[in-house]
Design a binder for these strands. Structure first.
Length: 424
RNA sequence: GGAGAGGUGGCUGAGCGGCCGAAAGCGGCGGUCUUGAAAACCGUUGAGGGUUGAUUCCCUCCCAGGGUUCGAAUCCCUGCCUCUCCGCCA
């Protein structure tokens, strides 16, 4: 959620910034609502004030043993009036909240204009694209041997967009997760967490998935309302919901491995082959909670932490700065890391690292106590995949294949593979 | 799943339906004392919002949502959560 004070101070600026991401903000509707809100709020509070002072004098009169009946007669109709005003106020506040919750974050000034991924900017490239003296296979064909990667079985057990991994490939995925967790904990200073994979609506509202993106989620239960997490970002960031953090405890750097569940509504027909887009996948997520002044730097660092995993695995990748139109709803600035997939002859997203600034923090009421003011102020939140394990598995398979369709284990993973050097 | 107890400020913990945004203690902050520290003593210390020229005035918040009442932290209902005992269980 954006700062309501920003709307009152400079509506044109807000509208202009939102238009950069093709969001048409109805400022007329907003202004009308805001004017009414102000009006009704003042009216309601006046009535409340009157009720309070009259009730107080009734109490005092009663204490002195005076006849309070005349006073009671005076207040008779106040209750109804007040109730009406309060209902009107809560009604307009609900409308206001609904409007505000549907407005995306304002893009950072360093974010380029643009409408779609076509307009994203390549920041850098790393690694050498492997040259094969044979026609490289994609991960589906590579995984088909001995049914190590079995999509038919996934479909039988659950349905489309599910997979079963067997033997060495299941282990390889686990090895990747271990490498990622160990690196982030031991070398990057993150604290490992384990969190619920089912979350309530408040948590999803806090990080911005609700109310707008319910269709992307799997709802696991109606009563109580619980959803499967689309990313560990949700439970991990919600650790600081309604918390005032002491300045000395910042930054908070958390890493969490979790399965992720996405309905992929709206993605019909896209990436139907293979493990690129599944309803369930494993991911190691990095989350940082920082002082506002530190978030730009933290964003660069967090992205580098994700990049280091790719470097350790010697996987070629490029770093993209998303344009305003392609940046996610809650984010003010996002870098995507795209890994090279020989089977697709293309770079594909493997990590997305975002600075949300105070957008999530405002919804979460996640604050820190600023020693300079002594007051609680909103923190900045950031997160990024470090990395998506399923897609990393694909990248390793396709980049480390040989002419026989075998997969050579990258050096960095050898300690986790129990002596196995080649799969095949 | 069954039975009971309870949810109050950073923490512990009082609180007759009006004088309670809330005692007291701890913690935090500031000060006195001290070469310094500790102890002791004194003072101070919740959050959100509206409004204003203003550090003015006002509103809301004692788990959440309803209700009773002129008036609710206090009474009633529902939900959620925590604890204890029993059962079951990875």
């Amino acid at each position: 959620m954006l700062d309501p004070r920003l709307f009152r101070a400079d509506l044109d600026y807000v509208k202009k910034q939102l238009s950069r991401r093709s969001f048409d903000f109805d400022s007329e509707y907003y202004s009308g609502l805001e004017a009414r809100r102000k009006d009704i709020q003042v009216k309601t509070q006046d009535l409340q004030n009157e009720r309070n002072s009259r009730s107080k004098s009734i109490g005092q009169a009663k204490a002195k043993g005076e006849d309070i009946q005349p006073l009671l007669d005076q207040v008779q109709h106040m209750a109804d009036q007040l109730k009406d005003a309060e209902m009107e106020l809560s009604d307009i506040q609900a409308k206001m909240t609904a409007l505000m919750e549907g407005i995306p974050n304002i893009p950072d000034e360093t974010v380029p204009d643009g409408r779609s991924e076509e307009d994203n900017i390549e920041i850098s490239r790393w690694g050498e694209i492997p040259v094969f003296d044979f026609e490289p296979k994609d991960h589906v064909d590579l995984g088909a041997q001995q049914k190590r990667m079995d999509f038919e079985l996934g479909a039988k057990i659950a349905g489309a967009r599910f997979v079963v991994l067997n033997g060495a490939l299941a282990r390889l995925q686990r090895a990747l997760i271990q490498l990622m967790l160990n690196t982030h904990v031991s070398e990057h200073g993150y604290s490992e967490t384990y969190v619920p994979f089912l979350v309530n609506a408040d948590s999803l509202r806090g990080t911005g998935q609700l109310p707008k993106f319910e269709a992307d989620l799997f709802k696991a239960s109606d009563d109580p309302a619980l959803y499967l997490i689309p990313t560990a970002e949700v439970p991990v960031t919600n650790i600081v919901r309604d918390v005032i953090i002491e300045a000395k405890n910042l930054p908070l750097k958390l890493v969490c491995h979790s399965p992720c569940f996405r309905s992929e509504a709206g993605a019909y027909g896209r990436d139907v082959r293979g493990m690129i887009r599944q309803h369930q996948f494993e991911k190691v997520e990095l989350v940082q909670i920082v002082k506002p002044e530190d978030s730009a730097k933290a964003h660069e660092e967090l992205t580098q932490h994700a990049e280091i995993i790719l470097k350790k695995l010697n996987l070629p990748y490029r770093k993209m700065l998303l344009c305003a139109g392609d940046t996610g709803f809650s984010s003010s600035k996002t870098y995507d890391l795209e890994v090279w997939l020989p089977g697709q002859d293309a770079y594909r997203e493997i990590s997305s690292c975002s600075n949300f600034k105070d957008f999530q923090a405002r919804r979460l009421q996640a604050r820190w106590r600023n020693p300079e003011t002594g007051k609680p102020e909103l923190v900045h939140t950031l997160n990024g995949s470090g990395l998506a394990a399923g897609r990393t598995l694909i990248a390793v398979m396709e980049n480390y294949q040989d002419a026989q369709g075998r997969i050579h284990i990258p050096d960095a993973l050898l300690p986790y593979m129990g002596g196995m050097e080649v799969i095949g």
